[in-house]
């Protein structure tokens, strides 16, 4: 039986592990946190149909329980040494694993919104990220802002840390547009009296039902979409925020008071991916995400033989895309191991 070590126990890691176990392989997942599921554990509801994130997380856990693969929680990879056709993997728990193939599924990190200093994240109480808002949207959580009231006017800023030369992130994080639409609708459902504005550069509704949700946000929920990027946010004496932007469709500068500002933060490759890339000798793109052999036919195959890539460690991805990418990674690993048996 061939042994595959998967680094990362998020959505991609668990889905790949499940598929490879089904194919008859022995699989071990190394996860740095106590729980598997990665960023999914921090999300409340998922686009485009508001599925509770817990439901997907539970189905992943069920796979962990039902399928016969091992998980090493609270464990990090210290070193990977290639030994002919095998890999020796040394972990922070002083374990030495021998593997026939490795799958990197180290995921992404959220952009640190403090780097966009002009928006005042972690300085102004009324500025939150999309990830913070997910926590606030959980049942029972209060949406009260610093002034001690429910927000009456809310603004979303798209592309925070994405498509932004100033932060060095030229790429699109893909999921923020639809996340903004989803969260705006959720807020409108919770706060029907609130006015909600989304400041965007382009709205990229590429996925199934995304465009329909965007239309619904405008027609049914009266959410206003303004094409323009925020230049700054400042706190007013009444603890509301003054935001400045340019409405590029009307060609006019715009100032607005809001009670809550939501920054739709993008994805970054993160330290875990950089560290995994260094350990394995896998190259990174300019963006920091892992480089595959090519982006069309071999997007799961790294430049190191026997090392495969799954999920958002290669590029920003939605949950759907991550699951598909993970399954295709499992197929590539299976094919590779079959060839090596011959």
């Amino acid at each position: 039986m061939k042994h595959i070590v998967i680094i990362g126990g998020g959505i991609a890691g668990i889905e790949t592990a499940s598929a490879l176990t089904d194919a008859g392989h022995w699989v071990t997942v190394i996860e740095k946190d106590t729980r598997v599921g990665g960023k999914l554990n921090n999300w409340s509801y998922l686009f485009p149909d508001f599925t509770p994130a817990e439901k997907i997380a539970e189905s992943l856990l069920e796979k962990c329980r039902e399928k016969d693969f091992s998980i090493l929680p609270d464990t990090e990879v210290k070193a990977i040494i290639r030994n002919q056709d095998k890999f020796n993997i040394h972990t922070s728990g002083n374990q030495n694993l021998e593997a026939d193939a490795i799958v990197l599924a180290t995921g992404y990190e959220l952009f640190d919104a403090r780097r966009k200093e002009e928006y005042g994240y972690k300085i102004y109480d009324q500025v939150v990220t999309s990830a913070d808002l997910e926590q606030l949207l959980r049942p029972g959580e209060s949406l009260t802002v610093a002034a001690g009231k429910n927000p009456k006017r809310i603004a979303f800023v798209h592309c925070v840390g994405s498509r932004d030369e100033k932060t060095g992130n030229h790429y699109c994080s893909k999921v923020c547009c639809i996340t903004g639409v989803k969260q705006a609708i959720e807020l409108k459902k919770r706060l029907p009296e609130a006015e909600i504005f989304c400041f965007y550069m382009d709205l990229r509704m590429y996925g199934k039902h995304f465009e329909e949700l965007y239309r619904e946000a405008q027609e049914k929920y009266d959410i206003q979409f303004i094409r323009g990027r925020l230049s700054e946010a400042s706190e007013k004496i009444d603890k509301s925020l003054l935001i400045k932007a340019e409405d590029t469709l009307s060609g006019r500068p715009l100032k607005m008071n809001v009670d809550l500002l939501v920054l739709l933060v993008g994805m970054e490759a993160g330290k875990g991916t950089a560290s995994a890339a260094f350990s394995c000798g896998v190259n990174c793109e300019e963006s920091g995400f892992l480089k595959s052999m090519d982006s069309l036919l071999r997007s799961n195959i790294s430049q190191q033989e026997g090392i495969f890539l799954a999920g958002s460690c290669t590029a920003p991805m939605s949950l759907n895309d991550t699951l598909l990418h993970a399954r295709s990674a499992a197929i590539e690993v299976n094919n590779y191991l079959k060839k090596s048996i011959k």
């Binding site: 403090r114 200093e117 005042g120 994240y121 972690k122 300085i123 102004y124 109480d125 706190e235």
Partner: peptide
């Protein structure tokens, strides 16, 4: 307003 946030920037 959180002073700690400003201190970090400084």
């Amino acid at each position: 307003m959180k002073k700690e946030g400003k201190i970090q920037v400084w």
